[in-house]
Structure formats: C-alpha cells, structure tokens
Design a protein around this nucleic acid. Structure first.
Lengths: 284, 284
DNA sequence: CCTGTCATGTTTATGGCGTACACAGGGTGT
DNA sequence: ACACCCTGTGTACGCCATAAACATGACAGG
C-alpha cells in the first residue's frame, strides 16, 4: 500500500488529506500508527521517536509500519496534523490583535501539550487539513487591516516562527533535564568554571548584580507583546499614510483634518510635542 | 587528554576558554579538528557533520578525534565559538536601536556564512569567549534605555532567537535543495495534489489570487523591523510613564515632576551627571 | 643506555537508527 | 481450484556515536 513510495510527496498528500474512510480492521492501520507515534513523541520527544519503538508499542515488527506509512518523515507529517486537530477554534470576531493573539495562544497551548511539535524541522513538511485550517484562521485575523497580501503572509509567518522558537527553548531545557536527571538551574548553577570568566564583561556583570537573571521575564509573553506591538505600529502607519482622516499615533484618537493646508498628524499640540520628544530620545 | 571526559561540562569550559597556547605539532590538534569541523558543516550542514567524516577529512581514524575532543557535542560548541570570532565589532556608539540592529545584522551575516549555526540545538551549549563577547555587545546596546535588567535580557534573547528562527528557515530550504536536487519553488510548485484542496479556504485563496505568495516580504528584514518597533514602543512607554511619577534611573528614588516644561528624568543633578558619565564610558 | 610514563593514534566491538528486499500466509475474486 | 494481492515478517545493509583495549613513539630519570 505504502511500499516503495518513500520519495513520493503526492502520496504523502493523499495520506494527509485522506477521507475518513478508515477500515476498522483489527490489525495495523494508519491511524493506530499515527496515534502511537504521538504518544511516543509526547513521552520521549521527537528524537525518541523511532520506527522500531512505534512498532514495539503496537506489538508488530518494525517493517510492518512501512505497509501503511511511507517513512518516518511522513509519519511525522501525519502526527503534526493529527494534533493540529486538537486546537480549539479561535474566535472569528473582534479586532485583528485580539484574534491574532488568540491564535498565538492557541498554538502555544498546542506546543505545550505536544512539545515535539516545535522540534519538527525541515522545510518540506506538507500541511494537512487541520494545519491549513489553523493557517487560514491566522491569515483571516489580519487580512483586513490594510496591509498588503505579502505583509499579511509575513505577519503570520513571523508569529508562527516565534511560537516555534520560544517553544523550542522550553523543549530543549526539558529534554536535557529528562536525559541527565539534573535540572536546568542546577546544571547552569554548577558551571562555576564559566562564571569565573564573566567578571571581565561589564554589562553582563552589572545585569547579574542587579538581579536581571534571577527572575527573568516570561519569554513567550514578553515576545508576543513586543511582536504584536510592532505589527500594530505598521498597521497604524499604513492607516495613516492611506487617508486623510487618520488616527493620532500618540493617543489613538481620530484626527480632525483642516479643510485646507497641510494634513495634521496629531490630534493636539501636546501630542505633537510628545511625539517630538519621543523621536528625540533616540529611537523610532 | 580528552579521554573519558565526555560527560564533564567543566572540561568543556576549559577547552572553550583555553589560552592560545596551541602546540604547532604536525599531528592532530584541537584547532585542526575544529577547523575541519567548520569546513565540513559549511559544506554539508550540521546533519552532515559526523566524527567519521571529520576524521576522514584530516586523514585520521575516527577514534583519534576523541583524544582531543570529548565528543561531537563539544566539538560543535567549539565550532560555534570559532566562527563567533569572525563577527566584526559592532559600533559602541549611537542610539540603542542603531546598535541593536547592527548586532542583529552582524549575527545574520554570521549565519549566512555558516548556516549550520542556526541548526545547533540543545539548551546546554556552553558559550565560549567570542559568543559571550557578542552577548555582552547586544546587552550593552539596550542596557541604558530605562528598561529593567530582566527586560534588557529578554530583549536580547528575543532578538537572538529571532535570528536563529529566520536563519533556520533558509537553511532548511537550502538543505532540502541540496539533498533532492530540486529547488524550493520547483518542489512546492509541483504539489498540485495539495493546491487542489486549497480553494476551500477563502482567505488563503484570496491572498493567493492577490499575488501575496508571488513576491513575499523578506522575512528577516520584515521581522527585524517589527521586532525593533515593538521594543521601541516599550522603551518609550517606560519613558512616558516616568513623566507622571517616575523613578530615577540611576538611584531609583521617585522624581518630582515640574508643573510644566520638559519632564525630568533624574532626581538630582548629581544623578544626571552620573548617567551622563555612564553613557559616555561606552555603554557599560 | 635502559626503562617507566604519557601522549597519541588504531582496532575492535556495542547498540542504535531508517529502510530495502525477499518471503510467507491468509483472504478474495474469478 | 487457482491466482493474486494485501498484510506482516526476517534478514541485511549502511550509517551513526562512542566505549575499551591495545600499539607506538617521544621523552625523562636513573
């Protein structure tokens, strides 16, 4: 059935987008294999996912799997879509930021439940119907913001990769703990040989002494806020450059435009002054 | 020399931070191995980096390497620091955004030259002196912006992971091309079986028809701009919130604000002077 | 000069991995 | 009754990291 198709991506598409016409045979089946794979990867990480162990878990020989799945990579694709189905539907209403943030949190929750998701690498993973549905939801959140189509796609890609990036951070720490039995903090705390060299670096030392490493920001929450802020700024800039009746960049209220003369960018002199100071103090 | 030390992180620290006292023997040496490793990974990616191939490239047996390097992981650590040395020194002056952006572009350039850098995973890689120097430079770029120490660290971490994330995107595409001989576009273009299913998704279809997928935004430039904007906003919010009843950045005591005029940033002339000197002395 | 020590490189072996290939048995269509 | 195919099995190959024992040559001390 799947034999000899290892290098055939179109067959992989068929499997991913297969109709639900599953045969409830009692032997092996694609779904049983995929589920076993998910369970294994949940427990041991993606590196611990081997065809041998999946087969063992099901009580079959290794090679029997290849009757149903072309190979390990395709199994991973199938697993990804399997768990993508778990994601609850994010709300379809509200402003773009609420919706995009909801999608991000949904994706974060998914990666918390299945940490191996973030470990999946390789640029040629074919998306299944559930993954595409998630993508569609994210795109639809920002599609009506006045951004160009390419920008919409870039925004969603950026947020998606941010999720993977931050999730990977946690997975790697957890995986190292699992393998070594030593906790993250404990292990780094024991690296005195390294810390001895650090006083030569003034900023690191200063931040260390000020306790910056003691209670760090939550990387996900922190990054998500910065990212959404950055996107928000772009959307507002688009909005401003687009038409006369804009919104004050400083306070967000609409700006009344004069009948003639240079268009106003700020709603009031105090906002103008504030924006000036902002520019002045070195930044955007 | 390195034998039996595979599980000893402190020994890895010694290797990374070794003094330059290299013996110019004619046989194997740590530096030759590291350089061969870099060359191999440059050519074949991190997955193509095997102890066998490194040894072969040098004309020795596989196990001979273990006399100098504890194991593959530590070799990778050493390689990372080796190439981190290539990074040119970013400017130590200018506003935070210019400096942080320069660091980011420097890191991007590094990953362009050595794509495998982005593939290095695992939370317990010990930084060498060059990597730490880069970290120090990034931290010093944003340390005097009024952010809390934890925020400064979070900002630098966020930008660093962004770099890896975007670099990985390119590496994976390149790696897939190298292995299959089929270009990214060609391969995805051939996935008609997938595209047939997409018309069911309205937003994807709309963006497709509007050409959003035809000439995409540069993910690095796009993401970097959003990220810096987001960080910028936070920095300005900090500055503004300080207007009402702020806190002196230097000594931490509350600042009495004048009824009118430019808001004060420091509680006293002496603190202002101290901050000035601090800025002056190169970010530290 | 002999000899013990140490740094260095080699050989062999273990256990893991993905998967190609030839084969076996049982159910189904003709 | 027969052929065929679907499914599962057994064996085997080539790759990987690395542990352990062994060989060699330089060099220091007696």
């Amino acid at each position: 059935m799947a034999r000899g198709r290892a290098g055939d991506p179109d067959h992989a598409v068929e499997l991913l987008w297969r109709e639900g016409g599953a045969r409830p045979r009692q032997g092996l089946s694609l779904d049983r294999i995929v589920r076993a794979g998910v369970a294994l990867a949940d427990a041991e990480g993606l590196a611990g996912l081997s065809m041998r162990k999946v087969a063992e878990r099901l009580g079959f020989t290794t090679m029997s799997l290849y009757r149903h799945v072309p190979g390990r990579d395709q199994l991973i694709d199938l697993m990804c879509d399997e768990v993508a189905a778990e994601a609850g539907a994010a709300p379809e209403e509200g402003d773009w930021r609420t919706r995009l943030e909801a999608c991000a949190r949904e994706g974060w929750e998914l990666r918390r439940r299945h940490p191996w998701l973030a470990e999946v690498r390789g640029g040629r993973h074919i998306p299944g119907p559930h993954a595409i549905a998630r993508y569609e939801r994210m795109l639809s959140a920002v599609v009506d913001t006045g951004l160009t189509p390419a920008e919409v796609i870039a925004v969603v890609g950026l947020v998606g990769r941010f999720l993977d990036s931050e999730a990977l951070l946690l997975v790697e720490a957890a995986e190292a703990e699992r393998r070594s039995g030593v906790s993250h903090e404990e292990w780094w705390g024991g690296r005195d040989a390294l810390f001895e060299r650090l006083p030569a670096y003034p900023t690191i030392t200063r931040l260390w002494e000020e306790g910056g490493f003691d209670d760090p920001e939550d990387p996900f929450e922190f990054g998500l806020a910065r990212l959404l802020d950055g996107i928000s700024l772009m959307i507002h800039e688009r909005y401003e450059s687009r038409d006369e009746t804009g919104v004050c960049t400083v306070c967000g209220t609409p700006v009344d435009q004069p009948a003639s003369g240079r268009p106003r960018a700020y709603c009031s002199p105090s906002c103008r002054q504030r924006a000036y100071r902002r520019r002045r103090s070195g930044g955007a």
